[in-house]
Design a protein around this nucleic acid. Sequence first.
DNA 1: TATTGTTATACTCTATAACTATA
DNA 2: TATAGTTATAGAGTATAACAATA
Lengths: 157, 157
Amino acid sequence: MRFDRPPPEPLASAPGFLLSWNGQRTSHTFAEALKPLGLRPHHFGVLTLIDTQPGSTQQELVDRSMIDPSSMVTVIDELEELGLAERRPHPSDRRKHAVHLTDRGIETLGRARASAIQTAEELFAPLDAEERETLRRLLRKLAGVETASARPRLGAD
Amino acid sequence: MRFDRPPPEPLASAPGFLLSWNGQRTSHTFAEALKPLGLRPHHFGVLTLIDTQPGSTQQELVDRSMIDPSSMVTVIDELEELGLAERRPHPSDRRKHAVHLTDRGIETLGRARASAIQTAEELFAPLDAEERETLRRLLRKLAGVETASARPRLGAD
DNA sequence: TATTGTTATACTCTATAACTATA
DNA sequence: TATAGTTATAGAGTATAACAATA
Protein backbone atom coordinates (compact mmCIF):
# COMPACT_ATOMS: atom_id res chain seq x y z
CA MET A 1 0.00 0.00 0.00
CA ARG A 2 1.24 3.48 -0.82
CA PHE A 3 0.82 6.30 1.65
CA ASP A 4 2.19 9.21 -0.36
CA ARG A 5 -1.28 10.27 -1.45
CA PRO A 6 -4.73 10.07 0.08
CA PRO A 7 -6.93 7.11 -0.80
CA PRO A 8 -9.15 7.73 -3.87
CA GLU A 9 -12.92 7.57 -3.88
CA PRO A 10 -14.98 5.54 -3.34
CA LEU A 11 -12.60 4.00 -0.79
CA ALA A 12 -12.12 7.30 1.03
CA SER A 13 -15.84 7.40 1.76
CA ALA A 14 -15.92 4.04 3.50
CA PRO A 15 -15.42 4.52 7.25
CA GLY A 16 -13.88 1.07 7.70
CA PHE A 17 -11.39 1.55 4.92
CA LEU A 18 -10.54 5.05 6.16
CA LEU A 19 -9.80 3.70 9.61
CA SER A 20 -7.67 0.85 8.27
CA TRP A 21 -5.78 3.13 5.93
CA ASN A 22 -5.01 5.73 8.58
CA GLY A 23 -3.96 2.99 10.97
CA GLN A 24 -1.65 1.34 8.49
CA ARG A 25 -0.12 4.62 7.47
CA THR A 26 0.50 5.44 11.11
CA SER A 27 2.26 2.11 11.79
CA HIS A 28 4.26 2.45 8.62
CA THR A 29 5.37 6.01 9.39
CA PHE A 30 6.41 5.14 12.94
CA ALA A 31 8.31 2.12 11.64
CA GLU A 32 10.20 4.32 9.18
CA ALA A 33 11.01 6.85 11.89
CA LEU A 34 12.46 4.13 14.14
CA LYS A 35 14.64 2.57 11.44
CA PRO A 36 17.60 4.97 11.89
CA LEU A 37 17.77 3.80 15.51
CA GLY A 38 17.81 0.16 14.40
CA LEU A 39 14.44 -0.47 16.05
CA ARG A 40 11.10 -1.82 14.93
CA PRO A 41 7.79 -0.79 16.51
CA HIS A 42 7.69 -3.87 18.75
CA HIS A 43 11.11 -2.96 20.14
CA PHE A 44 9.90 0.51 21.01
CA GLY A 45 6.74 -0.82 22.58
CA VAL A 46 8.54 -3.35 24.75
CA LEU A 47 11.25 -0.88 25.77
CA THR A 48 8.46 1.42 26.93
CA LEU A 49 6.81 -1.34 28.94
CA ILE A 50 10.06 -2.43 30.60
CA ASP A 51 10.76 1.19 31.47
CA THR A 52 7.29 1.50 33.02
CA GLN A 53 7.79 -1.60 35.12
CA PRO A 54 11.43 -2.73 35.36
CA GLY A 55 11.94 -6.38 36.22
CA SER A 56 8.76 -7.51 34.45
CA THR A 57 8.62 -11.16 33.44
CA GLN A 58 8.15 -12.00 29.79
CA GLN A 59 4.66 -13.21 30.51
CA GLU A 60 3.78 -9.86 32.06
CA LEU A 61 5.15 -8.11 28.99
CA VAL A 62 3.03 -10.38 26.81
CA ASP A 63 -0.10 -9.46 28.77
CA ARG A 64 0.63 -5.76 28.61
CA SER A 65 1.63 -5.62 24.95
CA MET A 66 -0.68 -7.96 23.00
CA ILE A 67 2.44 -9.53 21.50
CA ASP A 68 2.33 -13.34 21.54
CA PRO A 69 4.84 -15.27 23.69
CA SER A 70 7.06 -16.60 20.93
CA SER A 71 7.34 -13.20 19.28
CA MET A 72 8.20 -11.74 22.67
CA VAL A 73 11.15 -14.10 22.91
CA THR A 74 12.44 -12.83 19.59
CA VAL A 75 11.92 -9.18 20.53
CA ILE A 76 13.81 -9.55 23.81
CA ASP A 77 16.54 -11.57 22.11
CA GLU A 78 17.02 -8.68 19.71
CA LEU A 79 16.95 -6.07 22.46
CA GLU A 80 19.69 -8.06 24.23
CA GLU A 81 21.75 -8.30 21.03
CA LEU A 82 21.42 -4.54 20.67
CA GLY A 83 22.57 -4.13 24.26
CA LEU A 84 19.36 -2.33 25.23
CA ALA A 85 17.84 -4.81 27.67
CA GLU A 86 18.87 -7.86 29.64
CA ARG A 87 17.30 -10.93 31.20
CA ARG A 88 18.20 -11.38 34.86
CA PRO A 89 17.30 -14.29 37.10
CA HIS A 90 13.94 -13.84 38.75
CA PRO A 91 14.36 -13.59 42.54
CA SER A 92 11.70 -16.15 43.48
CA ASP A 93 10.97 -18.37 40.46
CA ARG A 94 13.71 -19.96 38.40
CA ARG A 95 11.38 -20.41 35.40
CA LYS A 96 10.97 -16.67 35.06
CA HIS A 97 13.24 -13.90 33.84
CA ALA A 98 13.27 -10.39 35.19
CA VAL A 99 13.75 -8.09 32.22
CA HIS A 100 15.57 -4.79 32.73
CA LEU A 101 16.79 -1.93 30.57
CA THR A 102 20.50 -1.24 30.27
CA ASP A 103 21.84 2.31 30.48
CA ARG A 104 22.09 2.26 26.75
CA GLY A 105 18.51 1.03 26.56
CA ILE A 106 17.36 4.02 28.58
CA GLU A 107 19.25 6.39 26.30
CA THR A 108 17.90 4.76 23.17
CA LEU A 109 14.36 4.82 24.51
CA GLY A 110 14.75 8.56 25.00
CA ARG A 111 15.83 9.00 21.42
CA ALA A 112 13.01 6.78 20.18
CA ARG A 113 10.51 8.85 22.15
CA ALA A 114 11.80 12.07 20.65
CA SER A 115 11.50 10.54 17.21
CA ALA A 116 7.98 9.32 17.95
CA ILE A 117 6.91 12.74 19.18
CA GLN A 118 8.16 14.38 16.03
CA THR A 119 6.51 11.74 13.85
CA ALA A 120 3.20 12.14 15.65
CA GLU A 121 3.47 15.88 15.18
CA GLU A 122 3.89 15.43 11.43
CA LEU A 123 1.17 12.82 11.12
CA PHE A 124 -1.42 14.79 13.06
CA ALA A 125 -0.47 18.12 11.50
CA PRO A 126 -3.75 18.36 9.52
CA LEU A 127 -5.69 18.49 12.81
CA ASP A 128 -5.68 21.30 15.38
CA ALA A 129 -5.33 20.61 19.10
CA GLU A 130 -9.06 20.31 19.74
CA GLU A 131 -9.58 17.96 16.81
CA ARG A 132 -6.72 15.75 17.96
CA GLU A 133 -8.25 15.46 21.40
CA THR A 134 -11.64 14.65 19.90
CA LEU A 135 -10.11 11.99 17.67
CA ARG A 136 -8.27 10.47 20.62
CA ARG A 137 -11.44 10.39 22.69
CA LEU A 138 -13.46 8.76 19.90
CA LEU A 139 -10.77 6.17 19.19
CA ARG A 140 -10.57 5.23 22.87
CA LYS A 141 -14.33 4.87 23.01
CA LEU A 142 -14.33 2.83 19.80
CA ALA A 143 -11.61 0.56 21.20
CA GLY A 144 -13.56 0.04 24.41
CA VAL A 145 -10.91 1.59 26.62
CA GLU A 146 -12.28 2.50 30.03
CA THR A 147 -12.45 6.25 30.20
CA ALA A 148 -12.07 6.26 33.99
CA SER A 149 -11.42 9.90 34.89
CA ALA A 150 -8.46 11.78 33.52
CA ARG A 151 -5.43 9.57 33.19
CA PRO A 152 -2.15 11.26 32.39
CA ARG A 153 -1.42 10.73 28.71
CA LEU A 154 1.84 9.95 26.97
CA GLY A 155 1.82 12.77 24.45
CA ALA A 156 4.12 10.94 22.05
CA ASP A 157 3.55 7.83 19.99
CA MET B 1 -2.45 -9.25 17.90
CA ARG B 2 -5.59 -10.03 19.83
CA PHE B 3 -8.69 -7.92 19.42
CA ASP B 4 -10.97 -9.52 21.99
CA ARG B 5 -10.11 -6.95 24.62
CA PRO B 6 -9.09 -3.28 24.52
CA PRO B 7 -5.39 -2.43 24.52
CA PRO B 8 -3.95 -1.98 28.04
CA GLU B 9 -2.30 1.19 29.31
CA PRO B 10 0.02 2.83 28.58
CA LEU B 11 -0.52 1.77 24.96
CA ALA B 12 -4.15 2.90 24.99
CA SER B 13 -3.01 6.43 25.78
CA ALA B 14 -0.75 6.75 22.77
CA PRO B 15 -2.70 8.28 19.87
CA GLY B 16 -0.54 6.56 17.25
CA PHE B 17 -0.98 3.15 18.81
CA LEU B 18 -4.70 3.72 19.26
CA LEU B 19 -5.08 4.55 15.60
CA SER B 20 -3.04 1.53 14.49
CA TRP B 21 -4.89 -0.80 16.80
CA ASN B 22 -8.35 0.36 15.73
CA GLY B 23 -7.28 0.15 12.09
CA GLN B 24 -5.92 -3.37 12.43
CA ARG B 25 -8.97 -4.55 14.32
CA THR B 26 -11.18 -3.09 11.62
CA SER B 27 -9.29 -4.87 8.80
CA HIS B 28 -9.25 -8.07 10.77
CA THR B 29 -12.97 -7.96 11.53
CA PHE B 30 -13.92 -7.25 7.93
CA ALA B 31 -11.65 -10.07 6.78
CA GLU B 32 -13.39 -12.48 9.13
CA ALA B 33 -16.81 -11.33 7.95
CA LEU B 34 -15.88 -11.94 4.31
CA LYS B 35 -14.47 -15.44 4.88
CA PRO B 36 -17.82 -17.26 4.65
CA LEU B 37 -18.17 -15.81 1.15
CA GLY B 38 -14.71 -17.08 0.20
CA LEU B 39 -13.44 -13.52 -0.21
CA ARG B 40 -10.56 -11.52 1.21
CA PRO B 41 -10.70 -7.73 1.66
CA HIS B 42 -8.83 -7.11 -1.59
CA HIS B 43 -11.43 -9.13 -3.47
CA PHE B 44 -14.22 -7.03 -2.01
CA GLY B 45 -12.39 -3.79 -2.78
CA VAL B 46 -11.71 -4.71 -6.39
CA LEU B 47 -15.24 -6.04 -6.93
CA THR B 48 -16.50 -2.67 -5.71
CA LEU B 49 -14.22 -0.78 -8.08
CA ILE B 50 -15.17 -2.90 -11.09
CA ASP B 51 -18.82 -2.39 -10.26
CA THR B 52 -18.27 1.37 -10.06
CA GLN B 53 -16.58 1.43 -13.45
CA PRO B 54 -17.11 -1.73 -15.51
CA GLY B 55 -14.51 -2.40 -18.17
CA SER B 56 -11.69 -0.82 -16.16
CA THR B 57 -8.17 -1.86 -17.14
CA GLN B 58 -5.98 -3.46 -14.50
CA GLN B 59 -3.84 -0.34 -14.40
CA GLU B 60 -6.91 1.76 -13.66
CA LEU B 61 -7.85 -0.60 -10.86
CA VAL B 62 -4.31 -0.31 -9.50
CA ASP B 63 -4.56 3.48 -9.46
CA ARG B 64 -7.96 3.47 -7.78
CA SER B 65 -7.15 0.81 -5.19
CA MET B 66 -3.58 1.36 -3.97
CA ILE B 67 -2.94 -2.33 -4.66
CA ASP B 68 0.34 -2.90 -6.53
CA PRO B 69 0.24 -4.29 -10.09
CA SER B 70 1.48 -7.79 -9.37
CA SER B 71 -0.96 -8.26 -6.50
CA MET B 72 -3.73 -7.00 -8.77
CA VAL B 73 -2.94 -9.81 -11.20
CA THR B 74 -3.38 -12.32 -8.41
CA VAL B 75 -6.60 -10.76 -7.16
CA ILE B 76 -8.19 -10.77 -10.62
CA ASP B 77 -6.93 -14.30 -11.26
CA GLU B 78 -8.72 -15.39 -8.11
CA LEU B 79 -11.89 -13.47 -8.97
CA GLU B 80 -11.90 -15.26 -12.33
CA GLU B 81 -11.37 -18.64 -10.66
CA LEU B 82 -14.33 -17.87 -8.39
CA GLY B 83 -16.39 -16.97 -11.44
CA LEU B 84 -17.01 -13.43 -10.15
CA ALA B 85 -15.15 -11.38 -12.77
CA GLU B 86 -13.67 -11.83 -16.21
CA ARG B 87 -10.98 -10.28 -18.38
CA ARG B 88 -12.24 -9.29 -21.82
CA PRO B 89 -10.21 -7.93 -24.71
CA HIS B 90 -9.86 -4.16 -24.59
CA PRO B 91 -11.56 -2.58 -27.61
CA SER B 92 -8.68 -0.33 -28.64
CA ASP B 93 -5.44 -1.60 -27.06
CA ARG B 94 -4.42 -5.23 -27.22
CA ARG B 95 -2.10 -4.85 -24.22
CA LYS B 96 -5.01 -4.03 -21.96
CA HIS B 97 -7.81 -6.05 -20.48
CA ALA B 98 -11.29 -4.77 -19.82
CA VAL B 99 -12.38 -6.25 -16.50
CA HIS B 100 -16.07 -6.92 -15.94
CA LEU B 101 -18.22 -8.51 -13.26
CA THR B 102 -20.16 -11.68 -14.03
CA ASP B 103 -23.77 -12.04 -12.90
CA ARG B 104 -22.51 -14.13 -10.06
CA GLY B 105 -19.99 -11.41 -9.21
CA ILE B 106 -22.79 -8.88 -8.94
CA GLU B 107 -24.74 -11.19 -6.63
CA THR B 108 -21.73 -11.92 -4.47
CA LEU B 109 -20.86 -8.24 -4.24
CA GLY B 110 -24.36 -7.63 -2.92
CA ARG B 111 -23.92 -10.24 -0.24
CA ALA B 112 -20.48 -8.89 0.66
CA ARG B 113 -21.93 -5.41 1.00
CA ALA B 114 -24.64 -6.63 3.33
CA SER B 115 -22.01 -8.39 5.41
CA ALA B 116 -19.84 -5.27 5.47
CA ILE B 117 -22.73 -3.09 6.57
CA GLN B 118 -23.51 -5.43 9.44
CA THR B 119 -19.85 -5.62 10.45
CA ALA B 120 -19.52 -1.84 10.40
CA GLU B 121 -22.63 -1.59 12.53
CA GLU B 122 -21.10 -3.91 15.14
CA LEU B 123 -17.69 -2.25 15.06
CA PHE B 124 -19.03 1.27 15.42
CA ALA B 125 -21.67 0.33 17.97
CA PRO B 126 -19.87 2.15 20.83
CA LEU B 127 -20.38 5.46 18.98
CA ASP B 128 -23.65 7.26 18.35
CA ALA B 129 -24.53 8.69 14.93
CA GLU B 130 -23.04 12.10 15.60
CA GLU B 131 -19.79 10.64 16.94
CA ARG B 132 -19.48 8.37 13.91
CA GLU B 133 -19.84 11.31 11.59
CA THR B 134 -17.27 13.31 13.57
CA LEU B 135 -14.84 10.39 13.45
CA ARG B 136 -15.32 10.02 9.71
CA ARG B 137 -14.72 13.72 9.16
CA LEU B 138 -11.56 13.72 11.27
CA LEU B 139 -10.17 10.60 9.59
CA ARG B 140 -10.77 12.10 6.14
CA LYS B 141 -9.01 15.27 7.19
CA LEU B 142 -6.17 13.30 8.71
CA ALA B 143 -5.81 11.26 5.52
CA GLY B 144 -5.72 14.41 3.41
CA VAL B 145 -8.88 13.57 1.48
CA GLU B 146 -10.30 16.60 -0.28
CA THR B 147 -13.50 17.56 1.46
CA ALA B 148 -14.94 19.10 -1.70
CA SER B 149 -18.64 19.64 -0.94
CA ALA B 150 -20.94 16.78 -0.03
CA ARG B 151 -20.10 13.62 -1.93
CA PRO B 152 -22.53 10.76 -1.62
CA ARG B 153 -21.11 8.24 0.83
CA LEU B 154 -21.11 4.48 0.77
CA GLY B 155 -22.62 3.82 4.15
CA ALA B 156 -21.14 0.37 4.38
CA ASP B 157 -17.55 -0.76 4.79
C1' DT C 1 11.23 3.87 -25.71
C1' DA C 2 7.27 3.48 -22.71
C1' DT C 3 3.37 0.91 -21.03
C1' DT C 4 0.43 -3.27 -19.70
C1' DG C 5 0.29 -7.23 -17.77
C1' DT C 6 2.72 -11.27 -15.99
C1' DT C 7 5.94 -14.30 -13.50
C1' DA C 8 9.20 -15.60 -10.17
C1' DT C 9 11.11 -14.56 -6.04
C1' DA C 10 12.18 -12.86 -1.59
C1' DC C 11 11.00 -10.76 2.52
C1' DT C 12 8.41 -9.45 6.71
C1' DC C 13 5.36 -10.55 10.04
C1' DT C 14 2.83 -13.49 12.71
C1' DA C 15 0.62 -17.66 14.34
C1' DT C 16 0.93 -22.60 15.84
C1' DA C 17 2.45 -26.45 18.02
C1' DA C 18 5.78 -29.05 20.32
C1' DC C 19 9.45 -29.11 23.64
C1' DT C 20 12.32 -28.06 28.43
C1' DA C 21 12.74 -26.79 32.89
C1' DT C 22 10.73 -25.61 36.66
C1' DA C 23 6.73 -25.10 39.89
C1' DT D 1 -0.58 -30.97 36.21
C1' DA D 2 0.25 -26.29 35.10
C1' DT D 3 3.26 -22.46 33.87
C1' DA D 4 7.43 -19.76 31.72
C1' DG D 5 10.12 -19.65 28.27
C1' DT D 6 11.95 -21.47 24.00
C1' DT D 7 12.37 -23.50 19.36
C1' DA D 8 11.04 -24.83 14.85
C1' DT D 9 7.96 -24.34 11.37
C1' DA D 10 4.48 -22.82 8.38
C1' DG D 11 1.45 -19.49 6.61
C1' DA D 12 -0.37 -15.03 4.99
C1' DG D 13 0.54 -10.94 2.88
C1' DT D 14 3.22 -7.90 0.32
C1' DA D 15 7.03 -5.93 -2.28
C1' DT D 16 10.68 -6.18 -6.00
C1' DA D 17 12.66 -6.98 -10.17
C1' DA D 18 12.89 -9.03 -14.53
C1' DC D 19 10.29 -10.31 -18.62
C1' DA D 20 7.04 -10.57 -23.03
C1' DA D 21 3.78 -8.38 -25.80
C1' DT D 22 2.22 -4.31 -27.62
C1' DA D 23 2.05 0.65 -28.34
